[in-house]
Design a protein around this nucleic acid. Structure first.
Lengths: 232, 232
DNA sequence: CTTACCACTGTGGTCTAACCACACTGTAAT
DNA sequence: ATTACAGTGTGGTTAGACCACAGTGGTAAG
């Protein structure tokens, strides 16, 4: 077993045993190295992996943002991993979109009415109406979909759904600017969002799921993703 | 931007541009360091991250297993990430199981009849009938479920499904040994497997999906996962 | 007493240079 | 022809140094 894996194992055990909790700080790299009788290099390699997994965040200096802190951001980590695999041509973009439709439909159907996430989703829709540019709009759009997914109460589904979107963010983003009429697209998307939210609040999960599926598929289809897997 | 992220970016570009394909070799660590004008340390940190993502595999010595080779194993990588987040208590085991049911039901419903994966699945069932011990049985069981998921033709769903199982493998494995009557459980599982496969081959996707959902939920329920989230 | 400055401390980030184990390759001795 | 072995290039690991950064606390100037 390689040295950095030993360090990983040790840290994972600390987490499993509860000796290290969310928001907690890992010992300094030099301290860990001495404690585990390994070099600082090996400790750092382990920390890098955990960072890539979204399990810790490393910060220099001193104060609250300093040191290596335990966080919980599986979404961005999974997204990076998927993005790399898309780059290797092993994961087709069409499969990413299809899976996103699957997860998000499921979440929409099971969204709990009255949870804070839905209120946040409604607020995000209002802000999207006055978004000054496309990037702002897309950022709010991402948060809306995540909030909707979170309303279903399954953290794994939420994380995966967010990661799927993130994995093809740039890919789809490039094509968004080439849409024939962004204002028209924006209006349609916003109307669809409100219809989805209305269906959820009306306890019509089935309809919400259908609308979400159509919404996502329509967007990617219009952007040309999936239909043209080799844009270069 | 940190140095190792620069290296990551460079490698990702090589992949995106097709200059580096699946099965291809990265330049040696020393060569990359010189080419990118960074230290070997930074190169190694980047390689570690890619390795954790299941994008590359590093091997010492010389010959076919040597060097850093581009692979495509998102399943194990995602599984490790999820396992760590389960350790931080951020991802409940119940959510993992629920998501697995979701993905696997979907896959069972859309499994293509006649693809090689289904033949492999059938063969795995025969081997499970004569499995000498629990570990062998569970290993074959895992491969059966993966093969079934692959028959649906969505690489992302297959990878995620495999990773979900892997994330709680040890967790569930500990409890498996404590089952009251393993022979009875084994017989039941094998019968359910054959019923699922029969439904798929009979073009009854709906029934296959139902059977898969019941199969998975039944197993974890019997093993005590989800009902007792704090086994320690 | 208040304020501004500044050395101090501990954090992660980076680099260099060396050595190791490993697995194959070519060559030389048998 | 076979065997033994030095050579080569790979990743794995280590030690030690220096950097930028951000708070802390003491100290000198006002």
């Amino acid at each position: 077993m390689r040295t950095h894996e030993l360090v990983l194992q040790w840290i994972e055990k600390q987490l499993s045993d509860g000796d290290l909790a969310l928001g907690g700080r890992l010992p300094g790299e030099r301290a860990m190295a001495e404690q585990l009788k390994v070099s600082r290099t090996s400790v750092r390699e382990a920390v890098r992996i955990l960072e890539a997994m979204g399990v810790v965040r490393a910060g220099v200096g001193s104060g609250k943002d300093a040191g290596t802190v335990v966080i919980a951001e599986p979404g961005s980590a999974l997204g990076s991993t998927l993005r790399l695999h898309v780059a290797t041509r092993h994961l087709p973009v069409a499969d990413i979109v299809e899976t996103r439709v699957l997860l998000e439909s499921w979440a929409a159907e099971r969204a709990q009415v009255g949870v804070p996430e839905l209120e946040e989703a409604a607020e995000l829709l209002d802000r999207m109406d006055v978004a000054p540019d496309i990037d702002t709009f897309l950022a709010l759009d991402a948060r809306f979909h995540v909030a909707l997914a979170q309303a279903a109460g399954n953290a794994v589904v939420s994380a995966m759904m967010a990661s799927l979107r993130g994995a093809i963010e740039n890919y789809a983003g490039e094509l968004t600017g080439n849409l024939p009429d962004w204002n028209a697209t924006s209006s349609r998307l916003r109307a669809e969002h409100r219809a989805i939210l209305a269906a959820v609040n009306n306890h019509d999960g089935g309809k919400a799921a259908e609308l979400v599926a159509a919404h996502i598929q329509g967007f990617y289809k219009e952007a040309g993703v999936g239909a043209n897997p080799s844009p270069s």
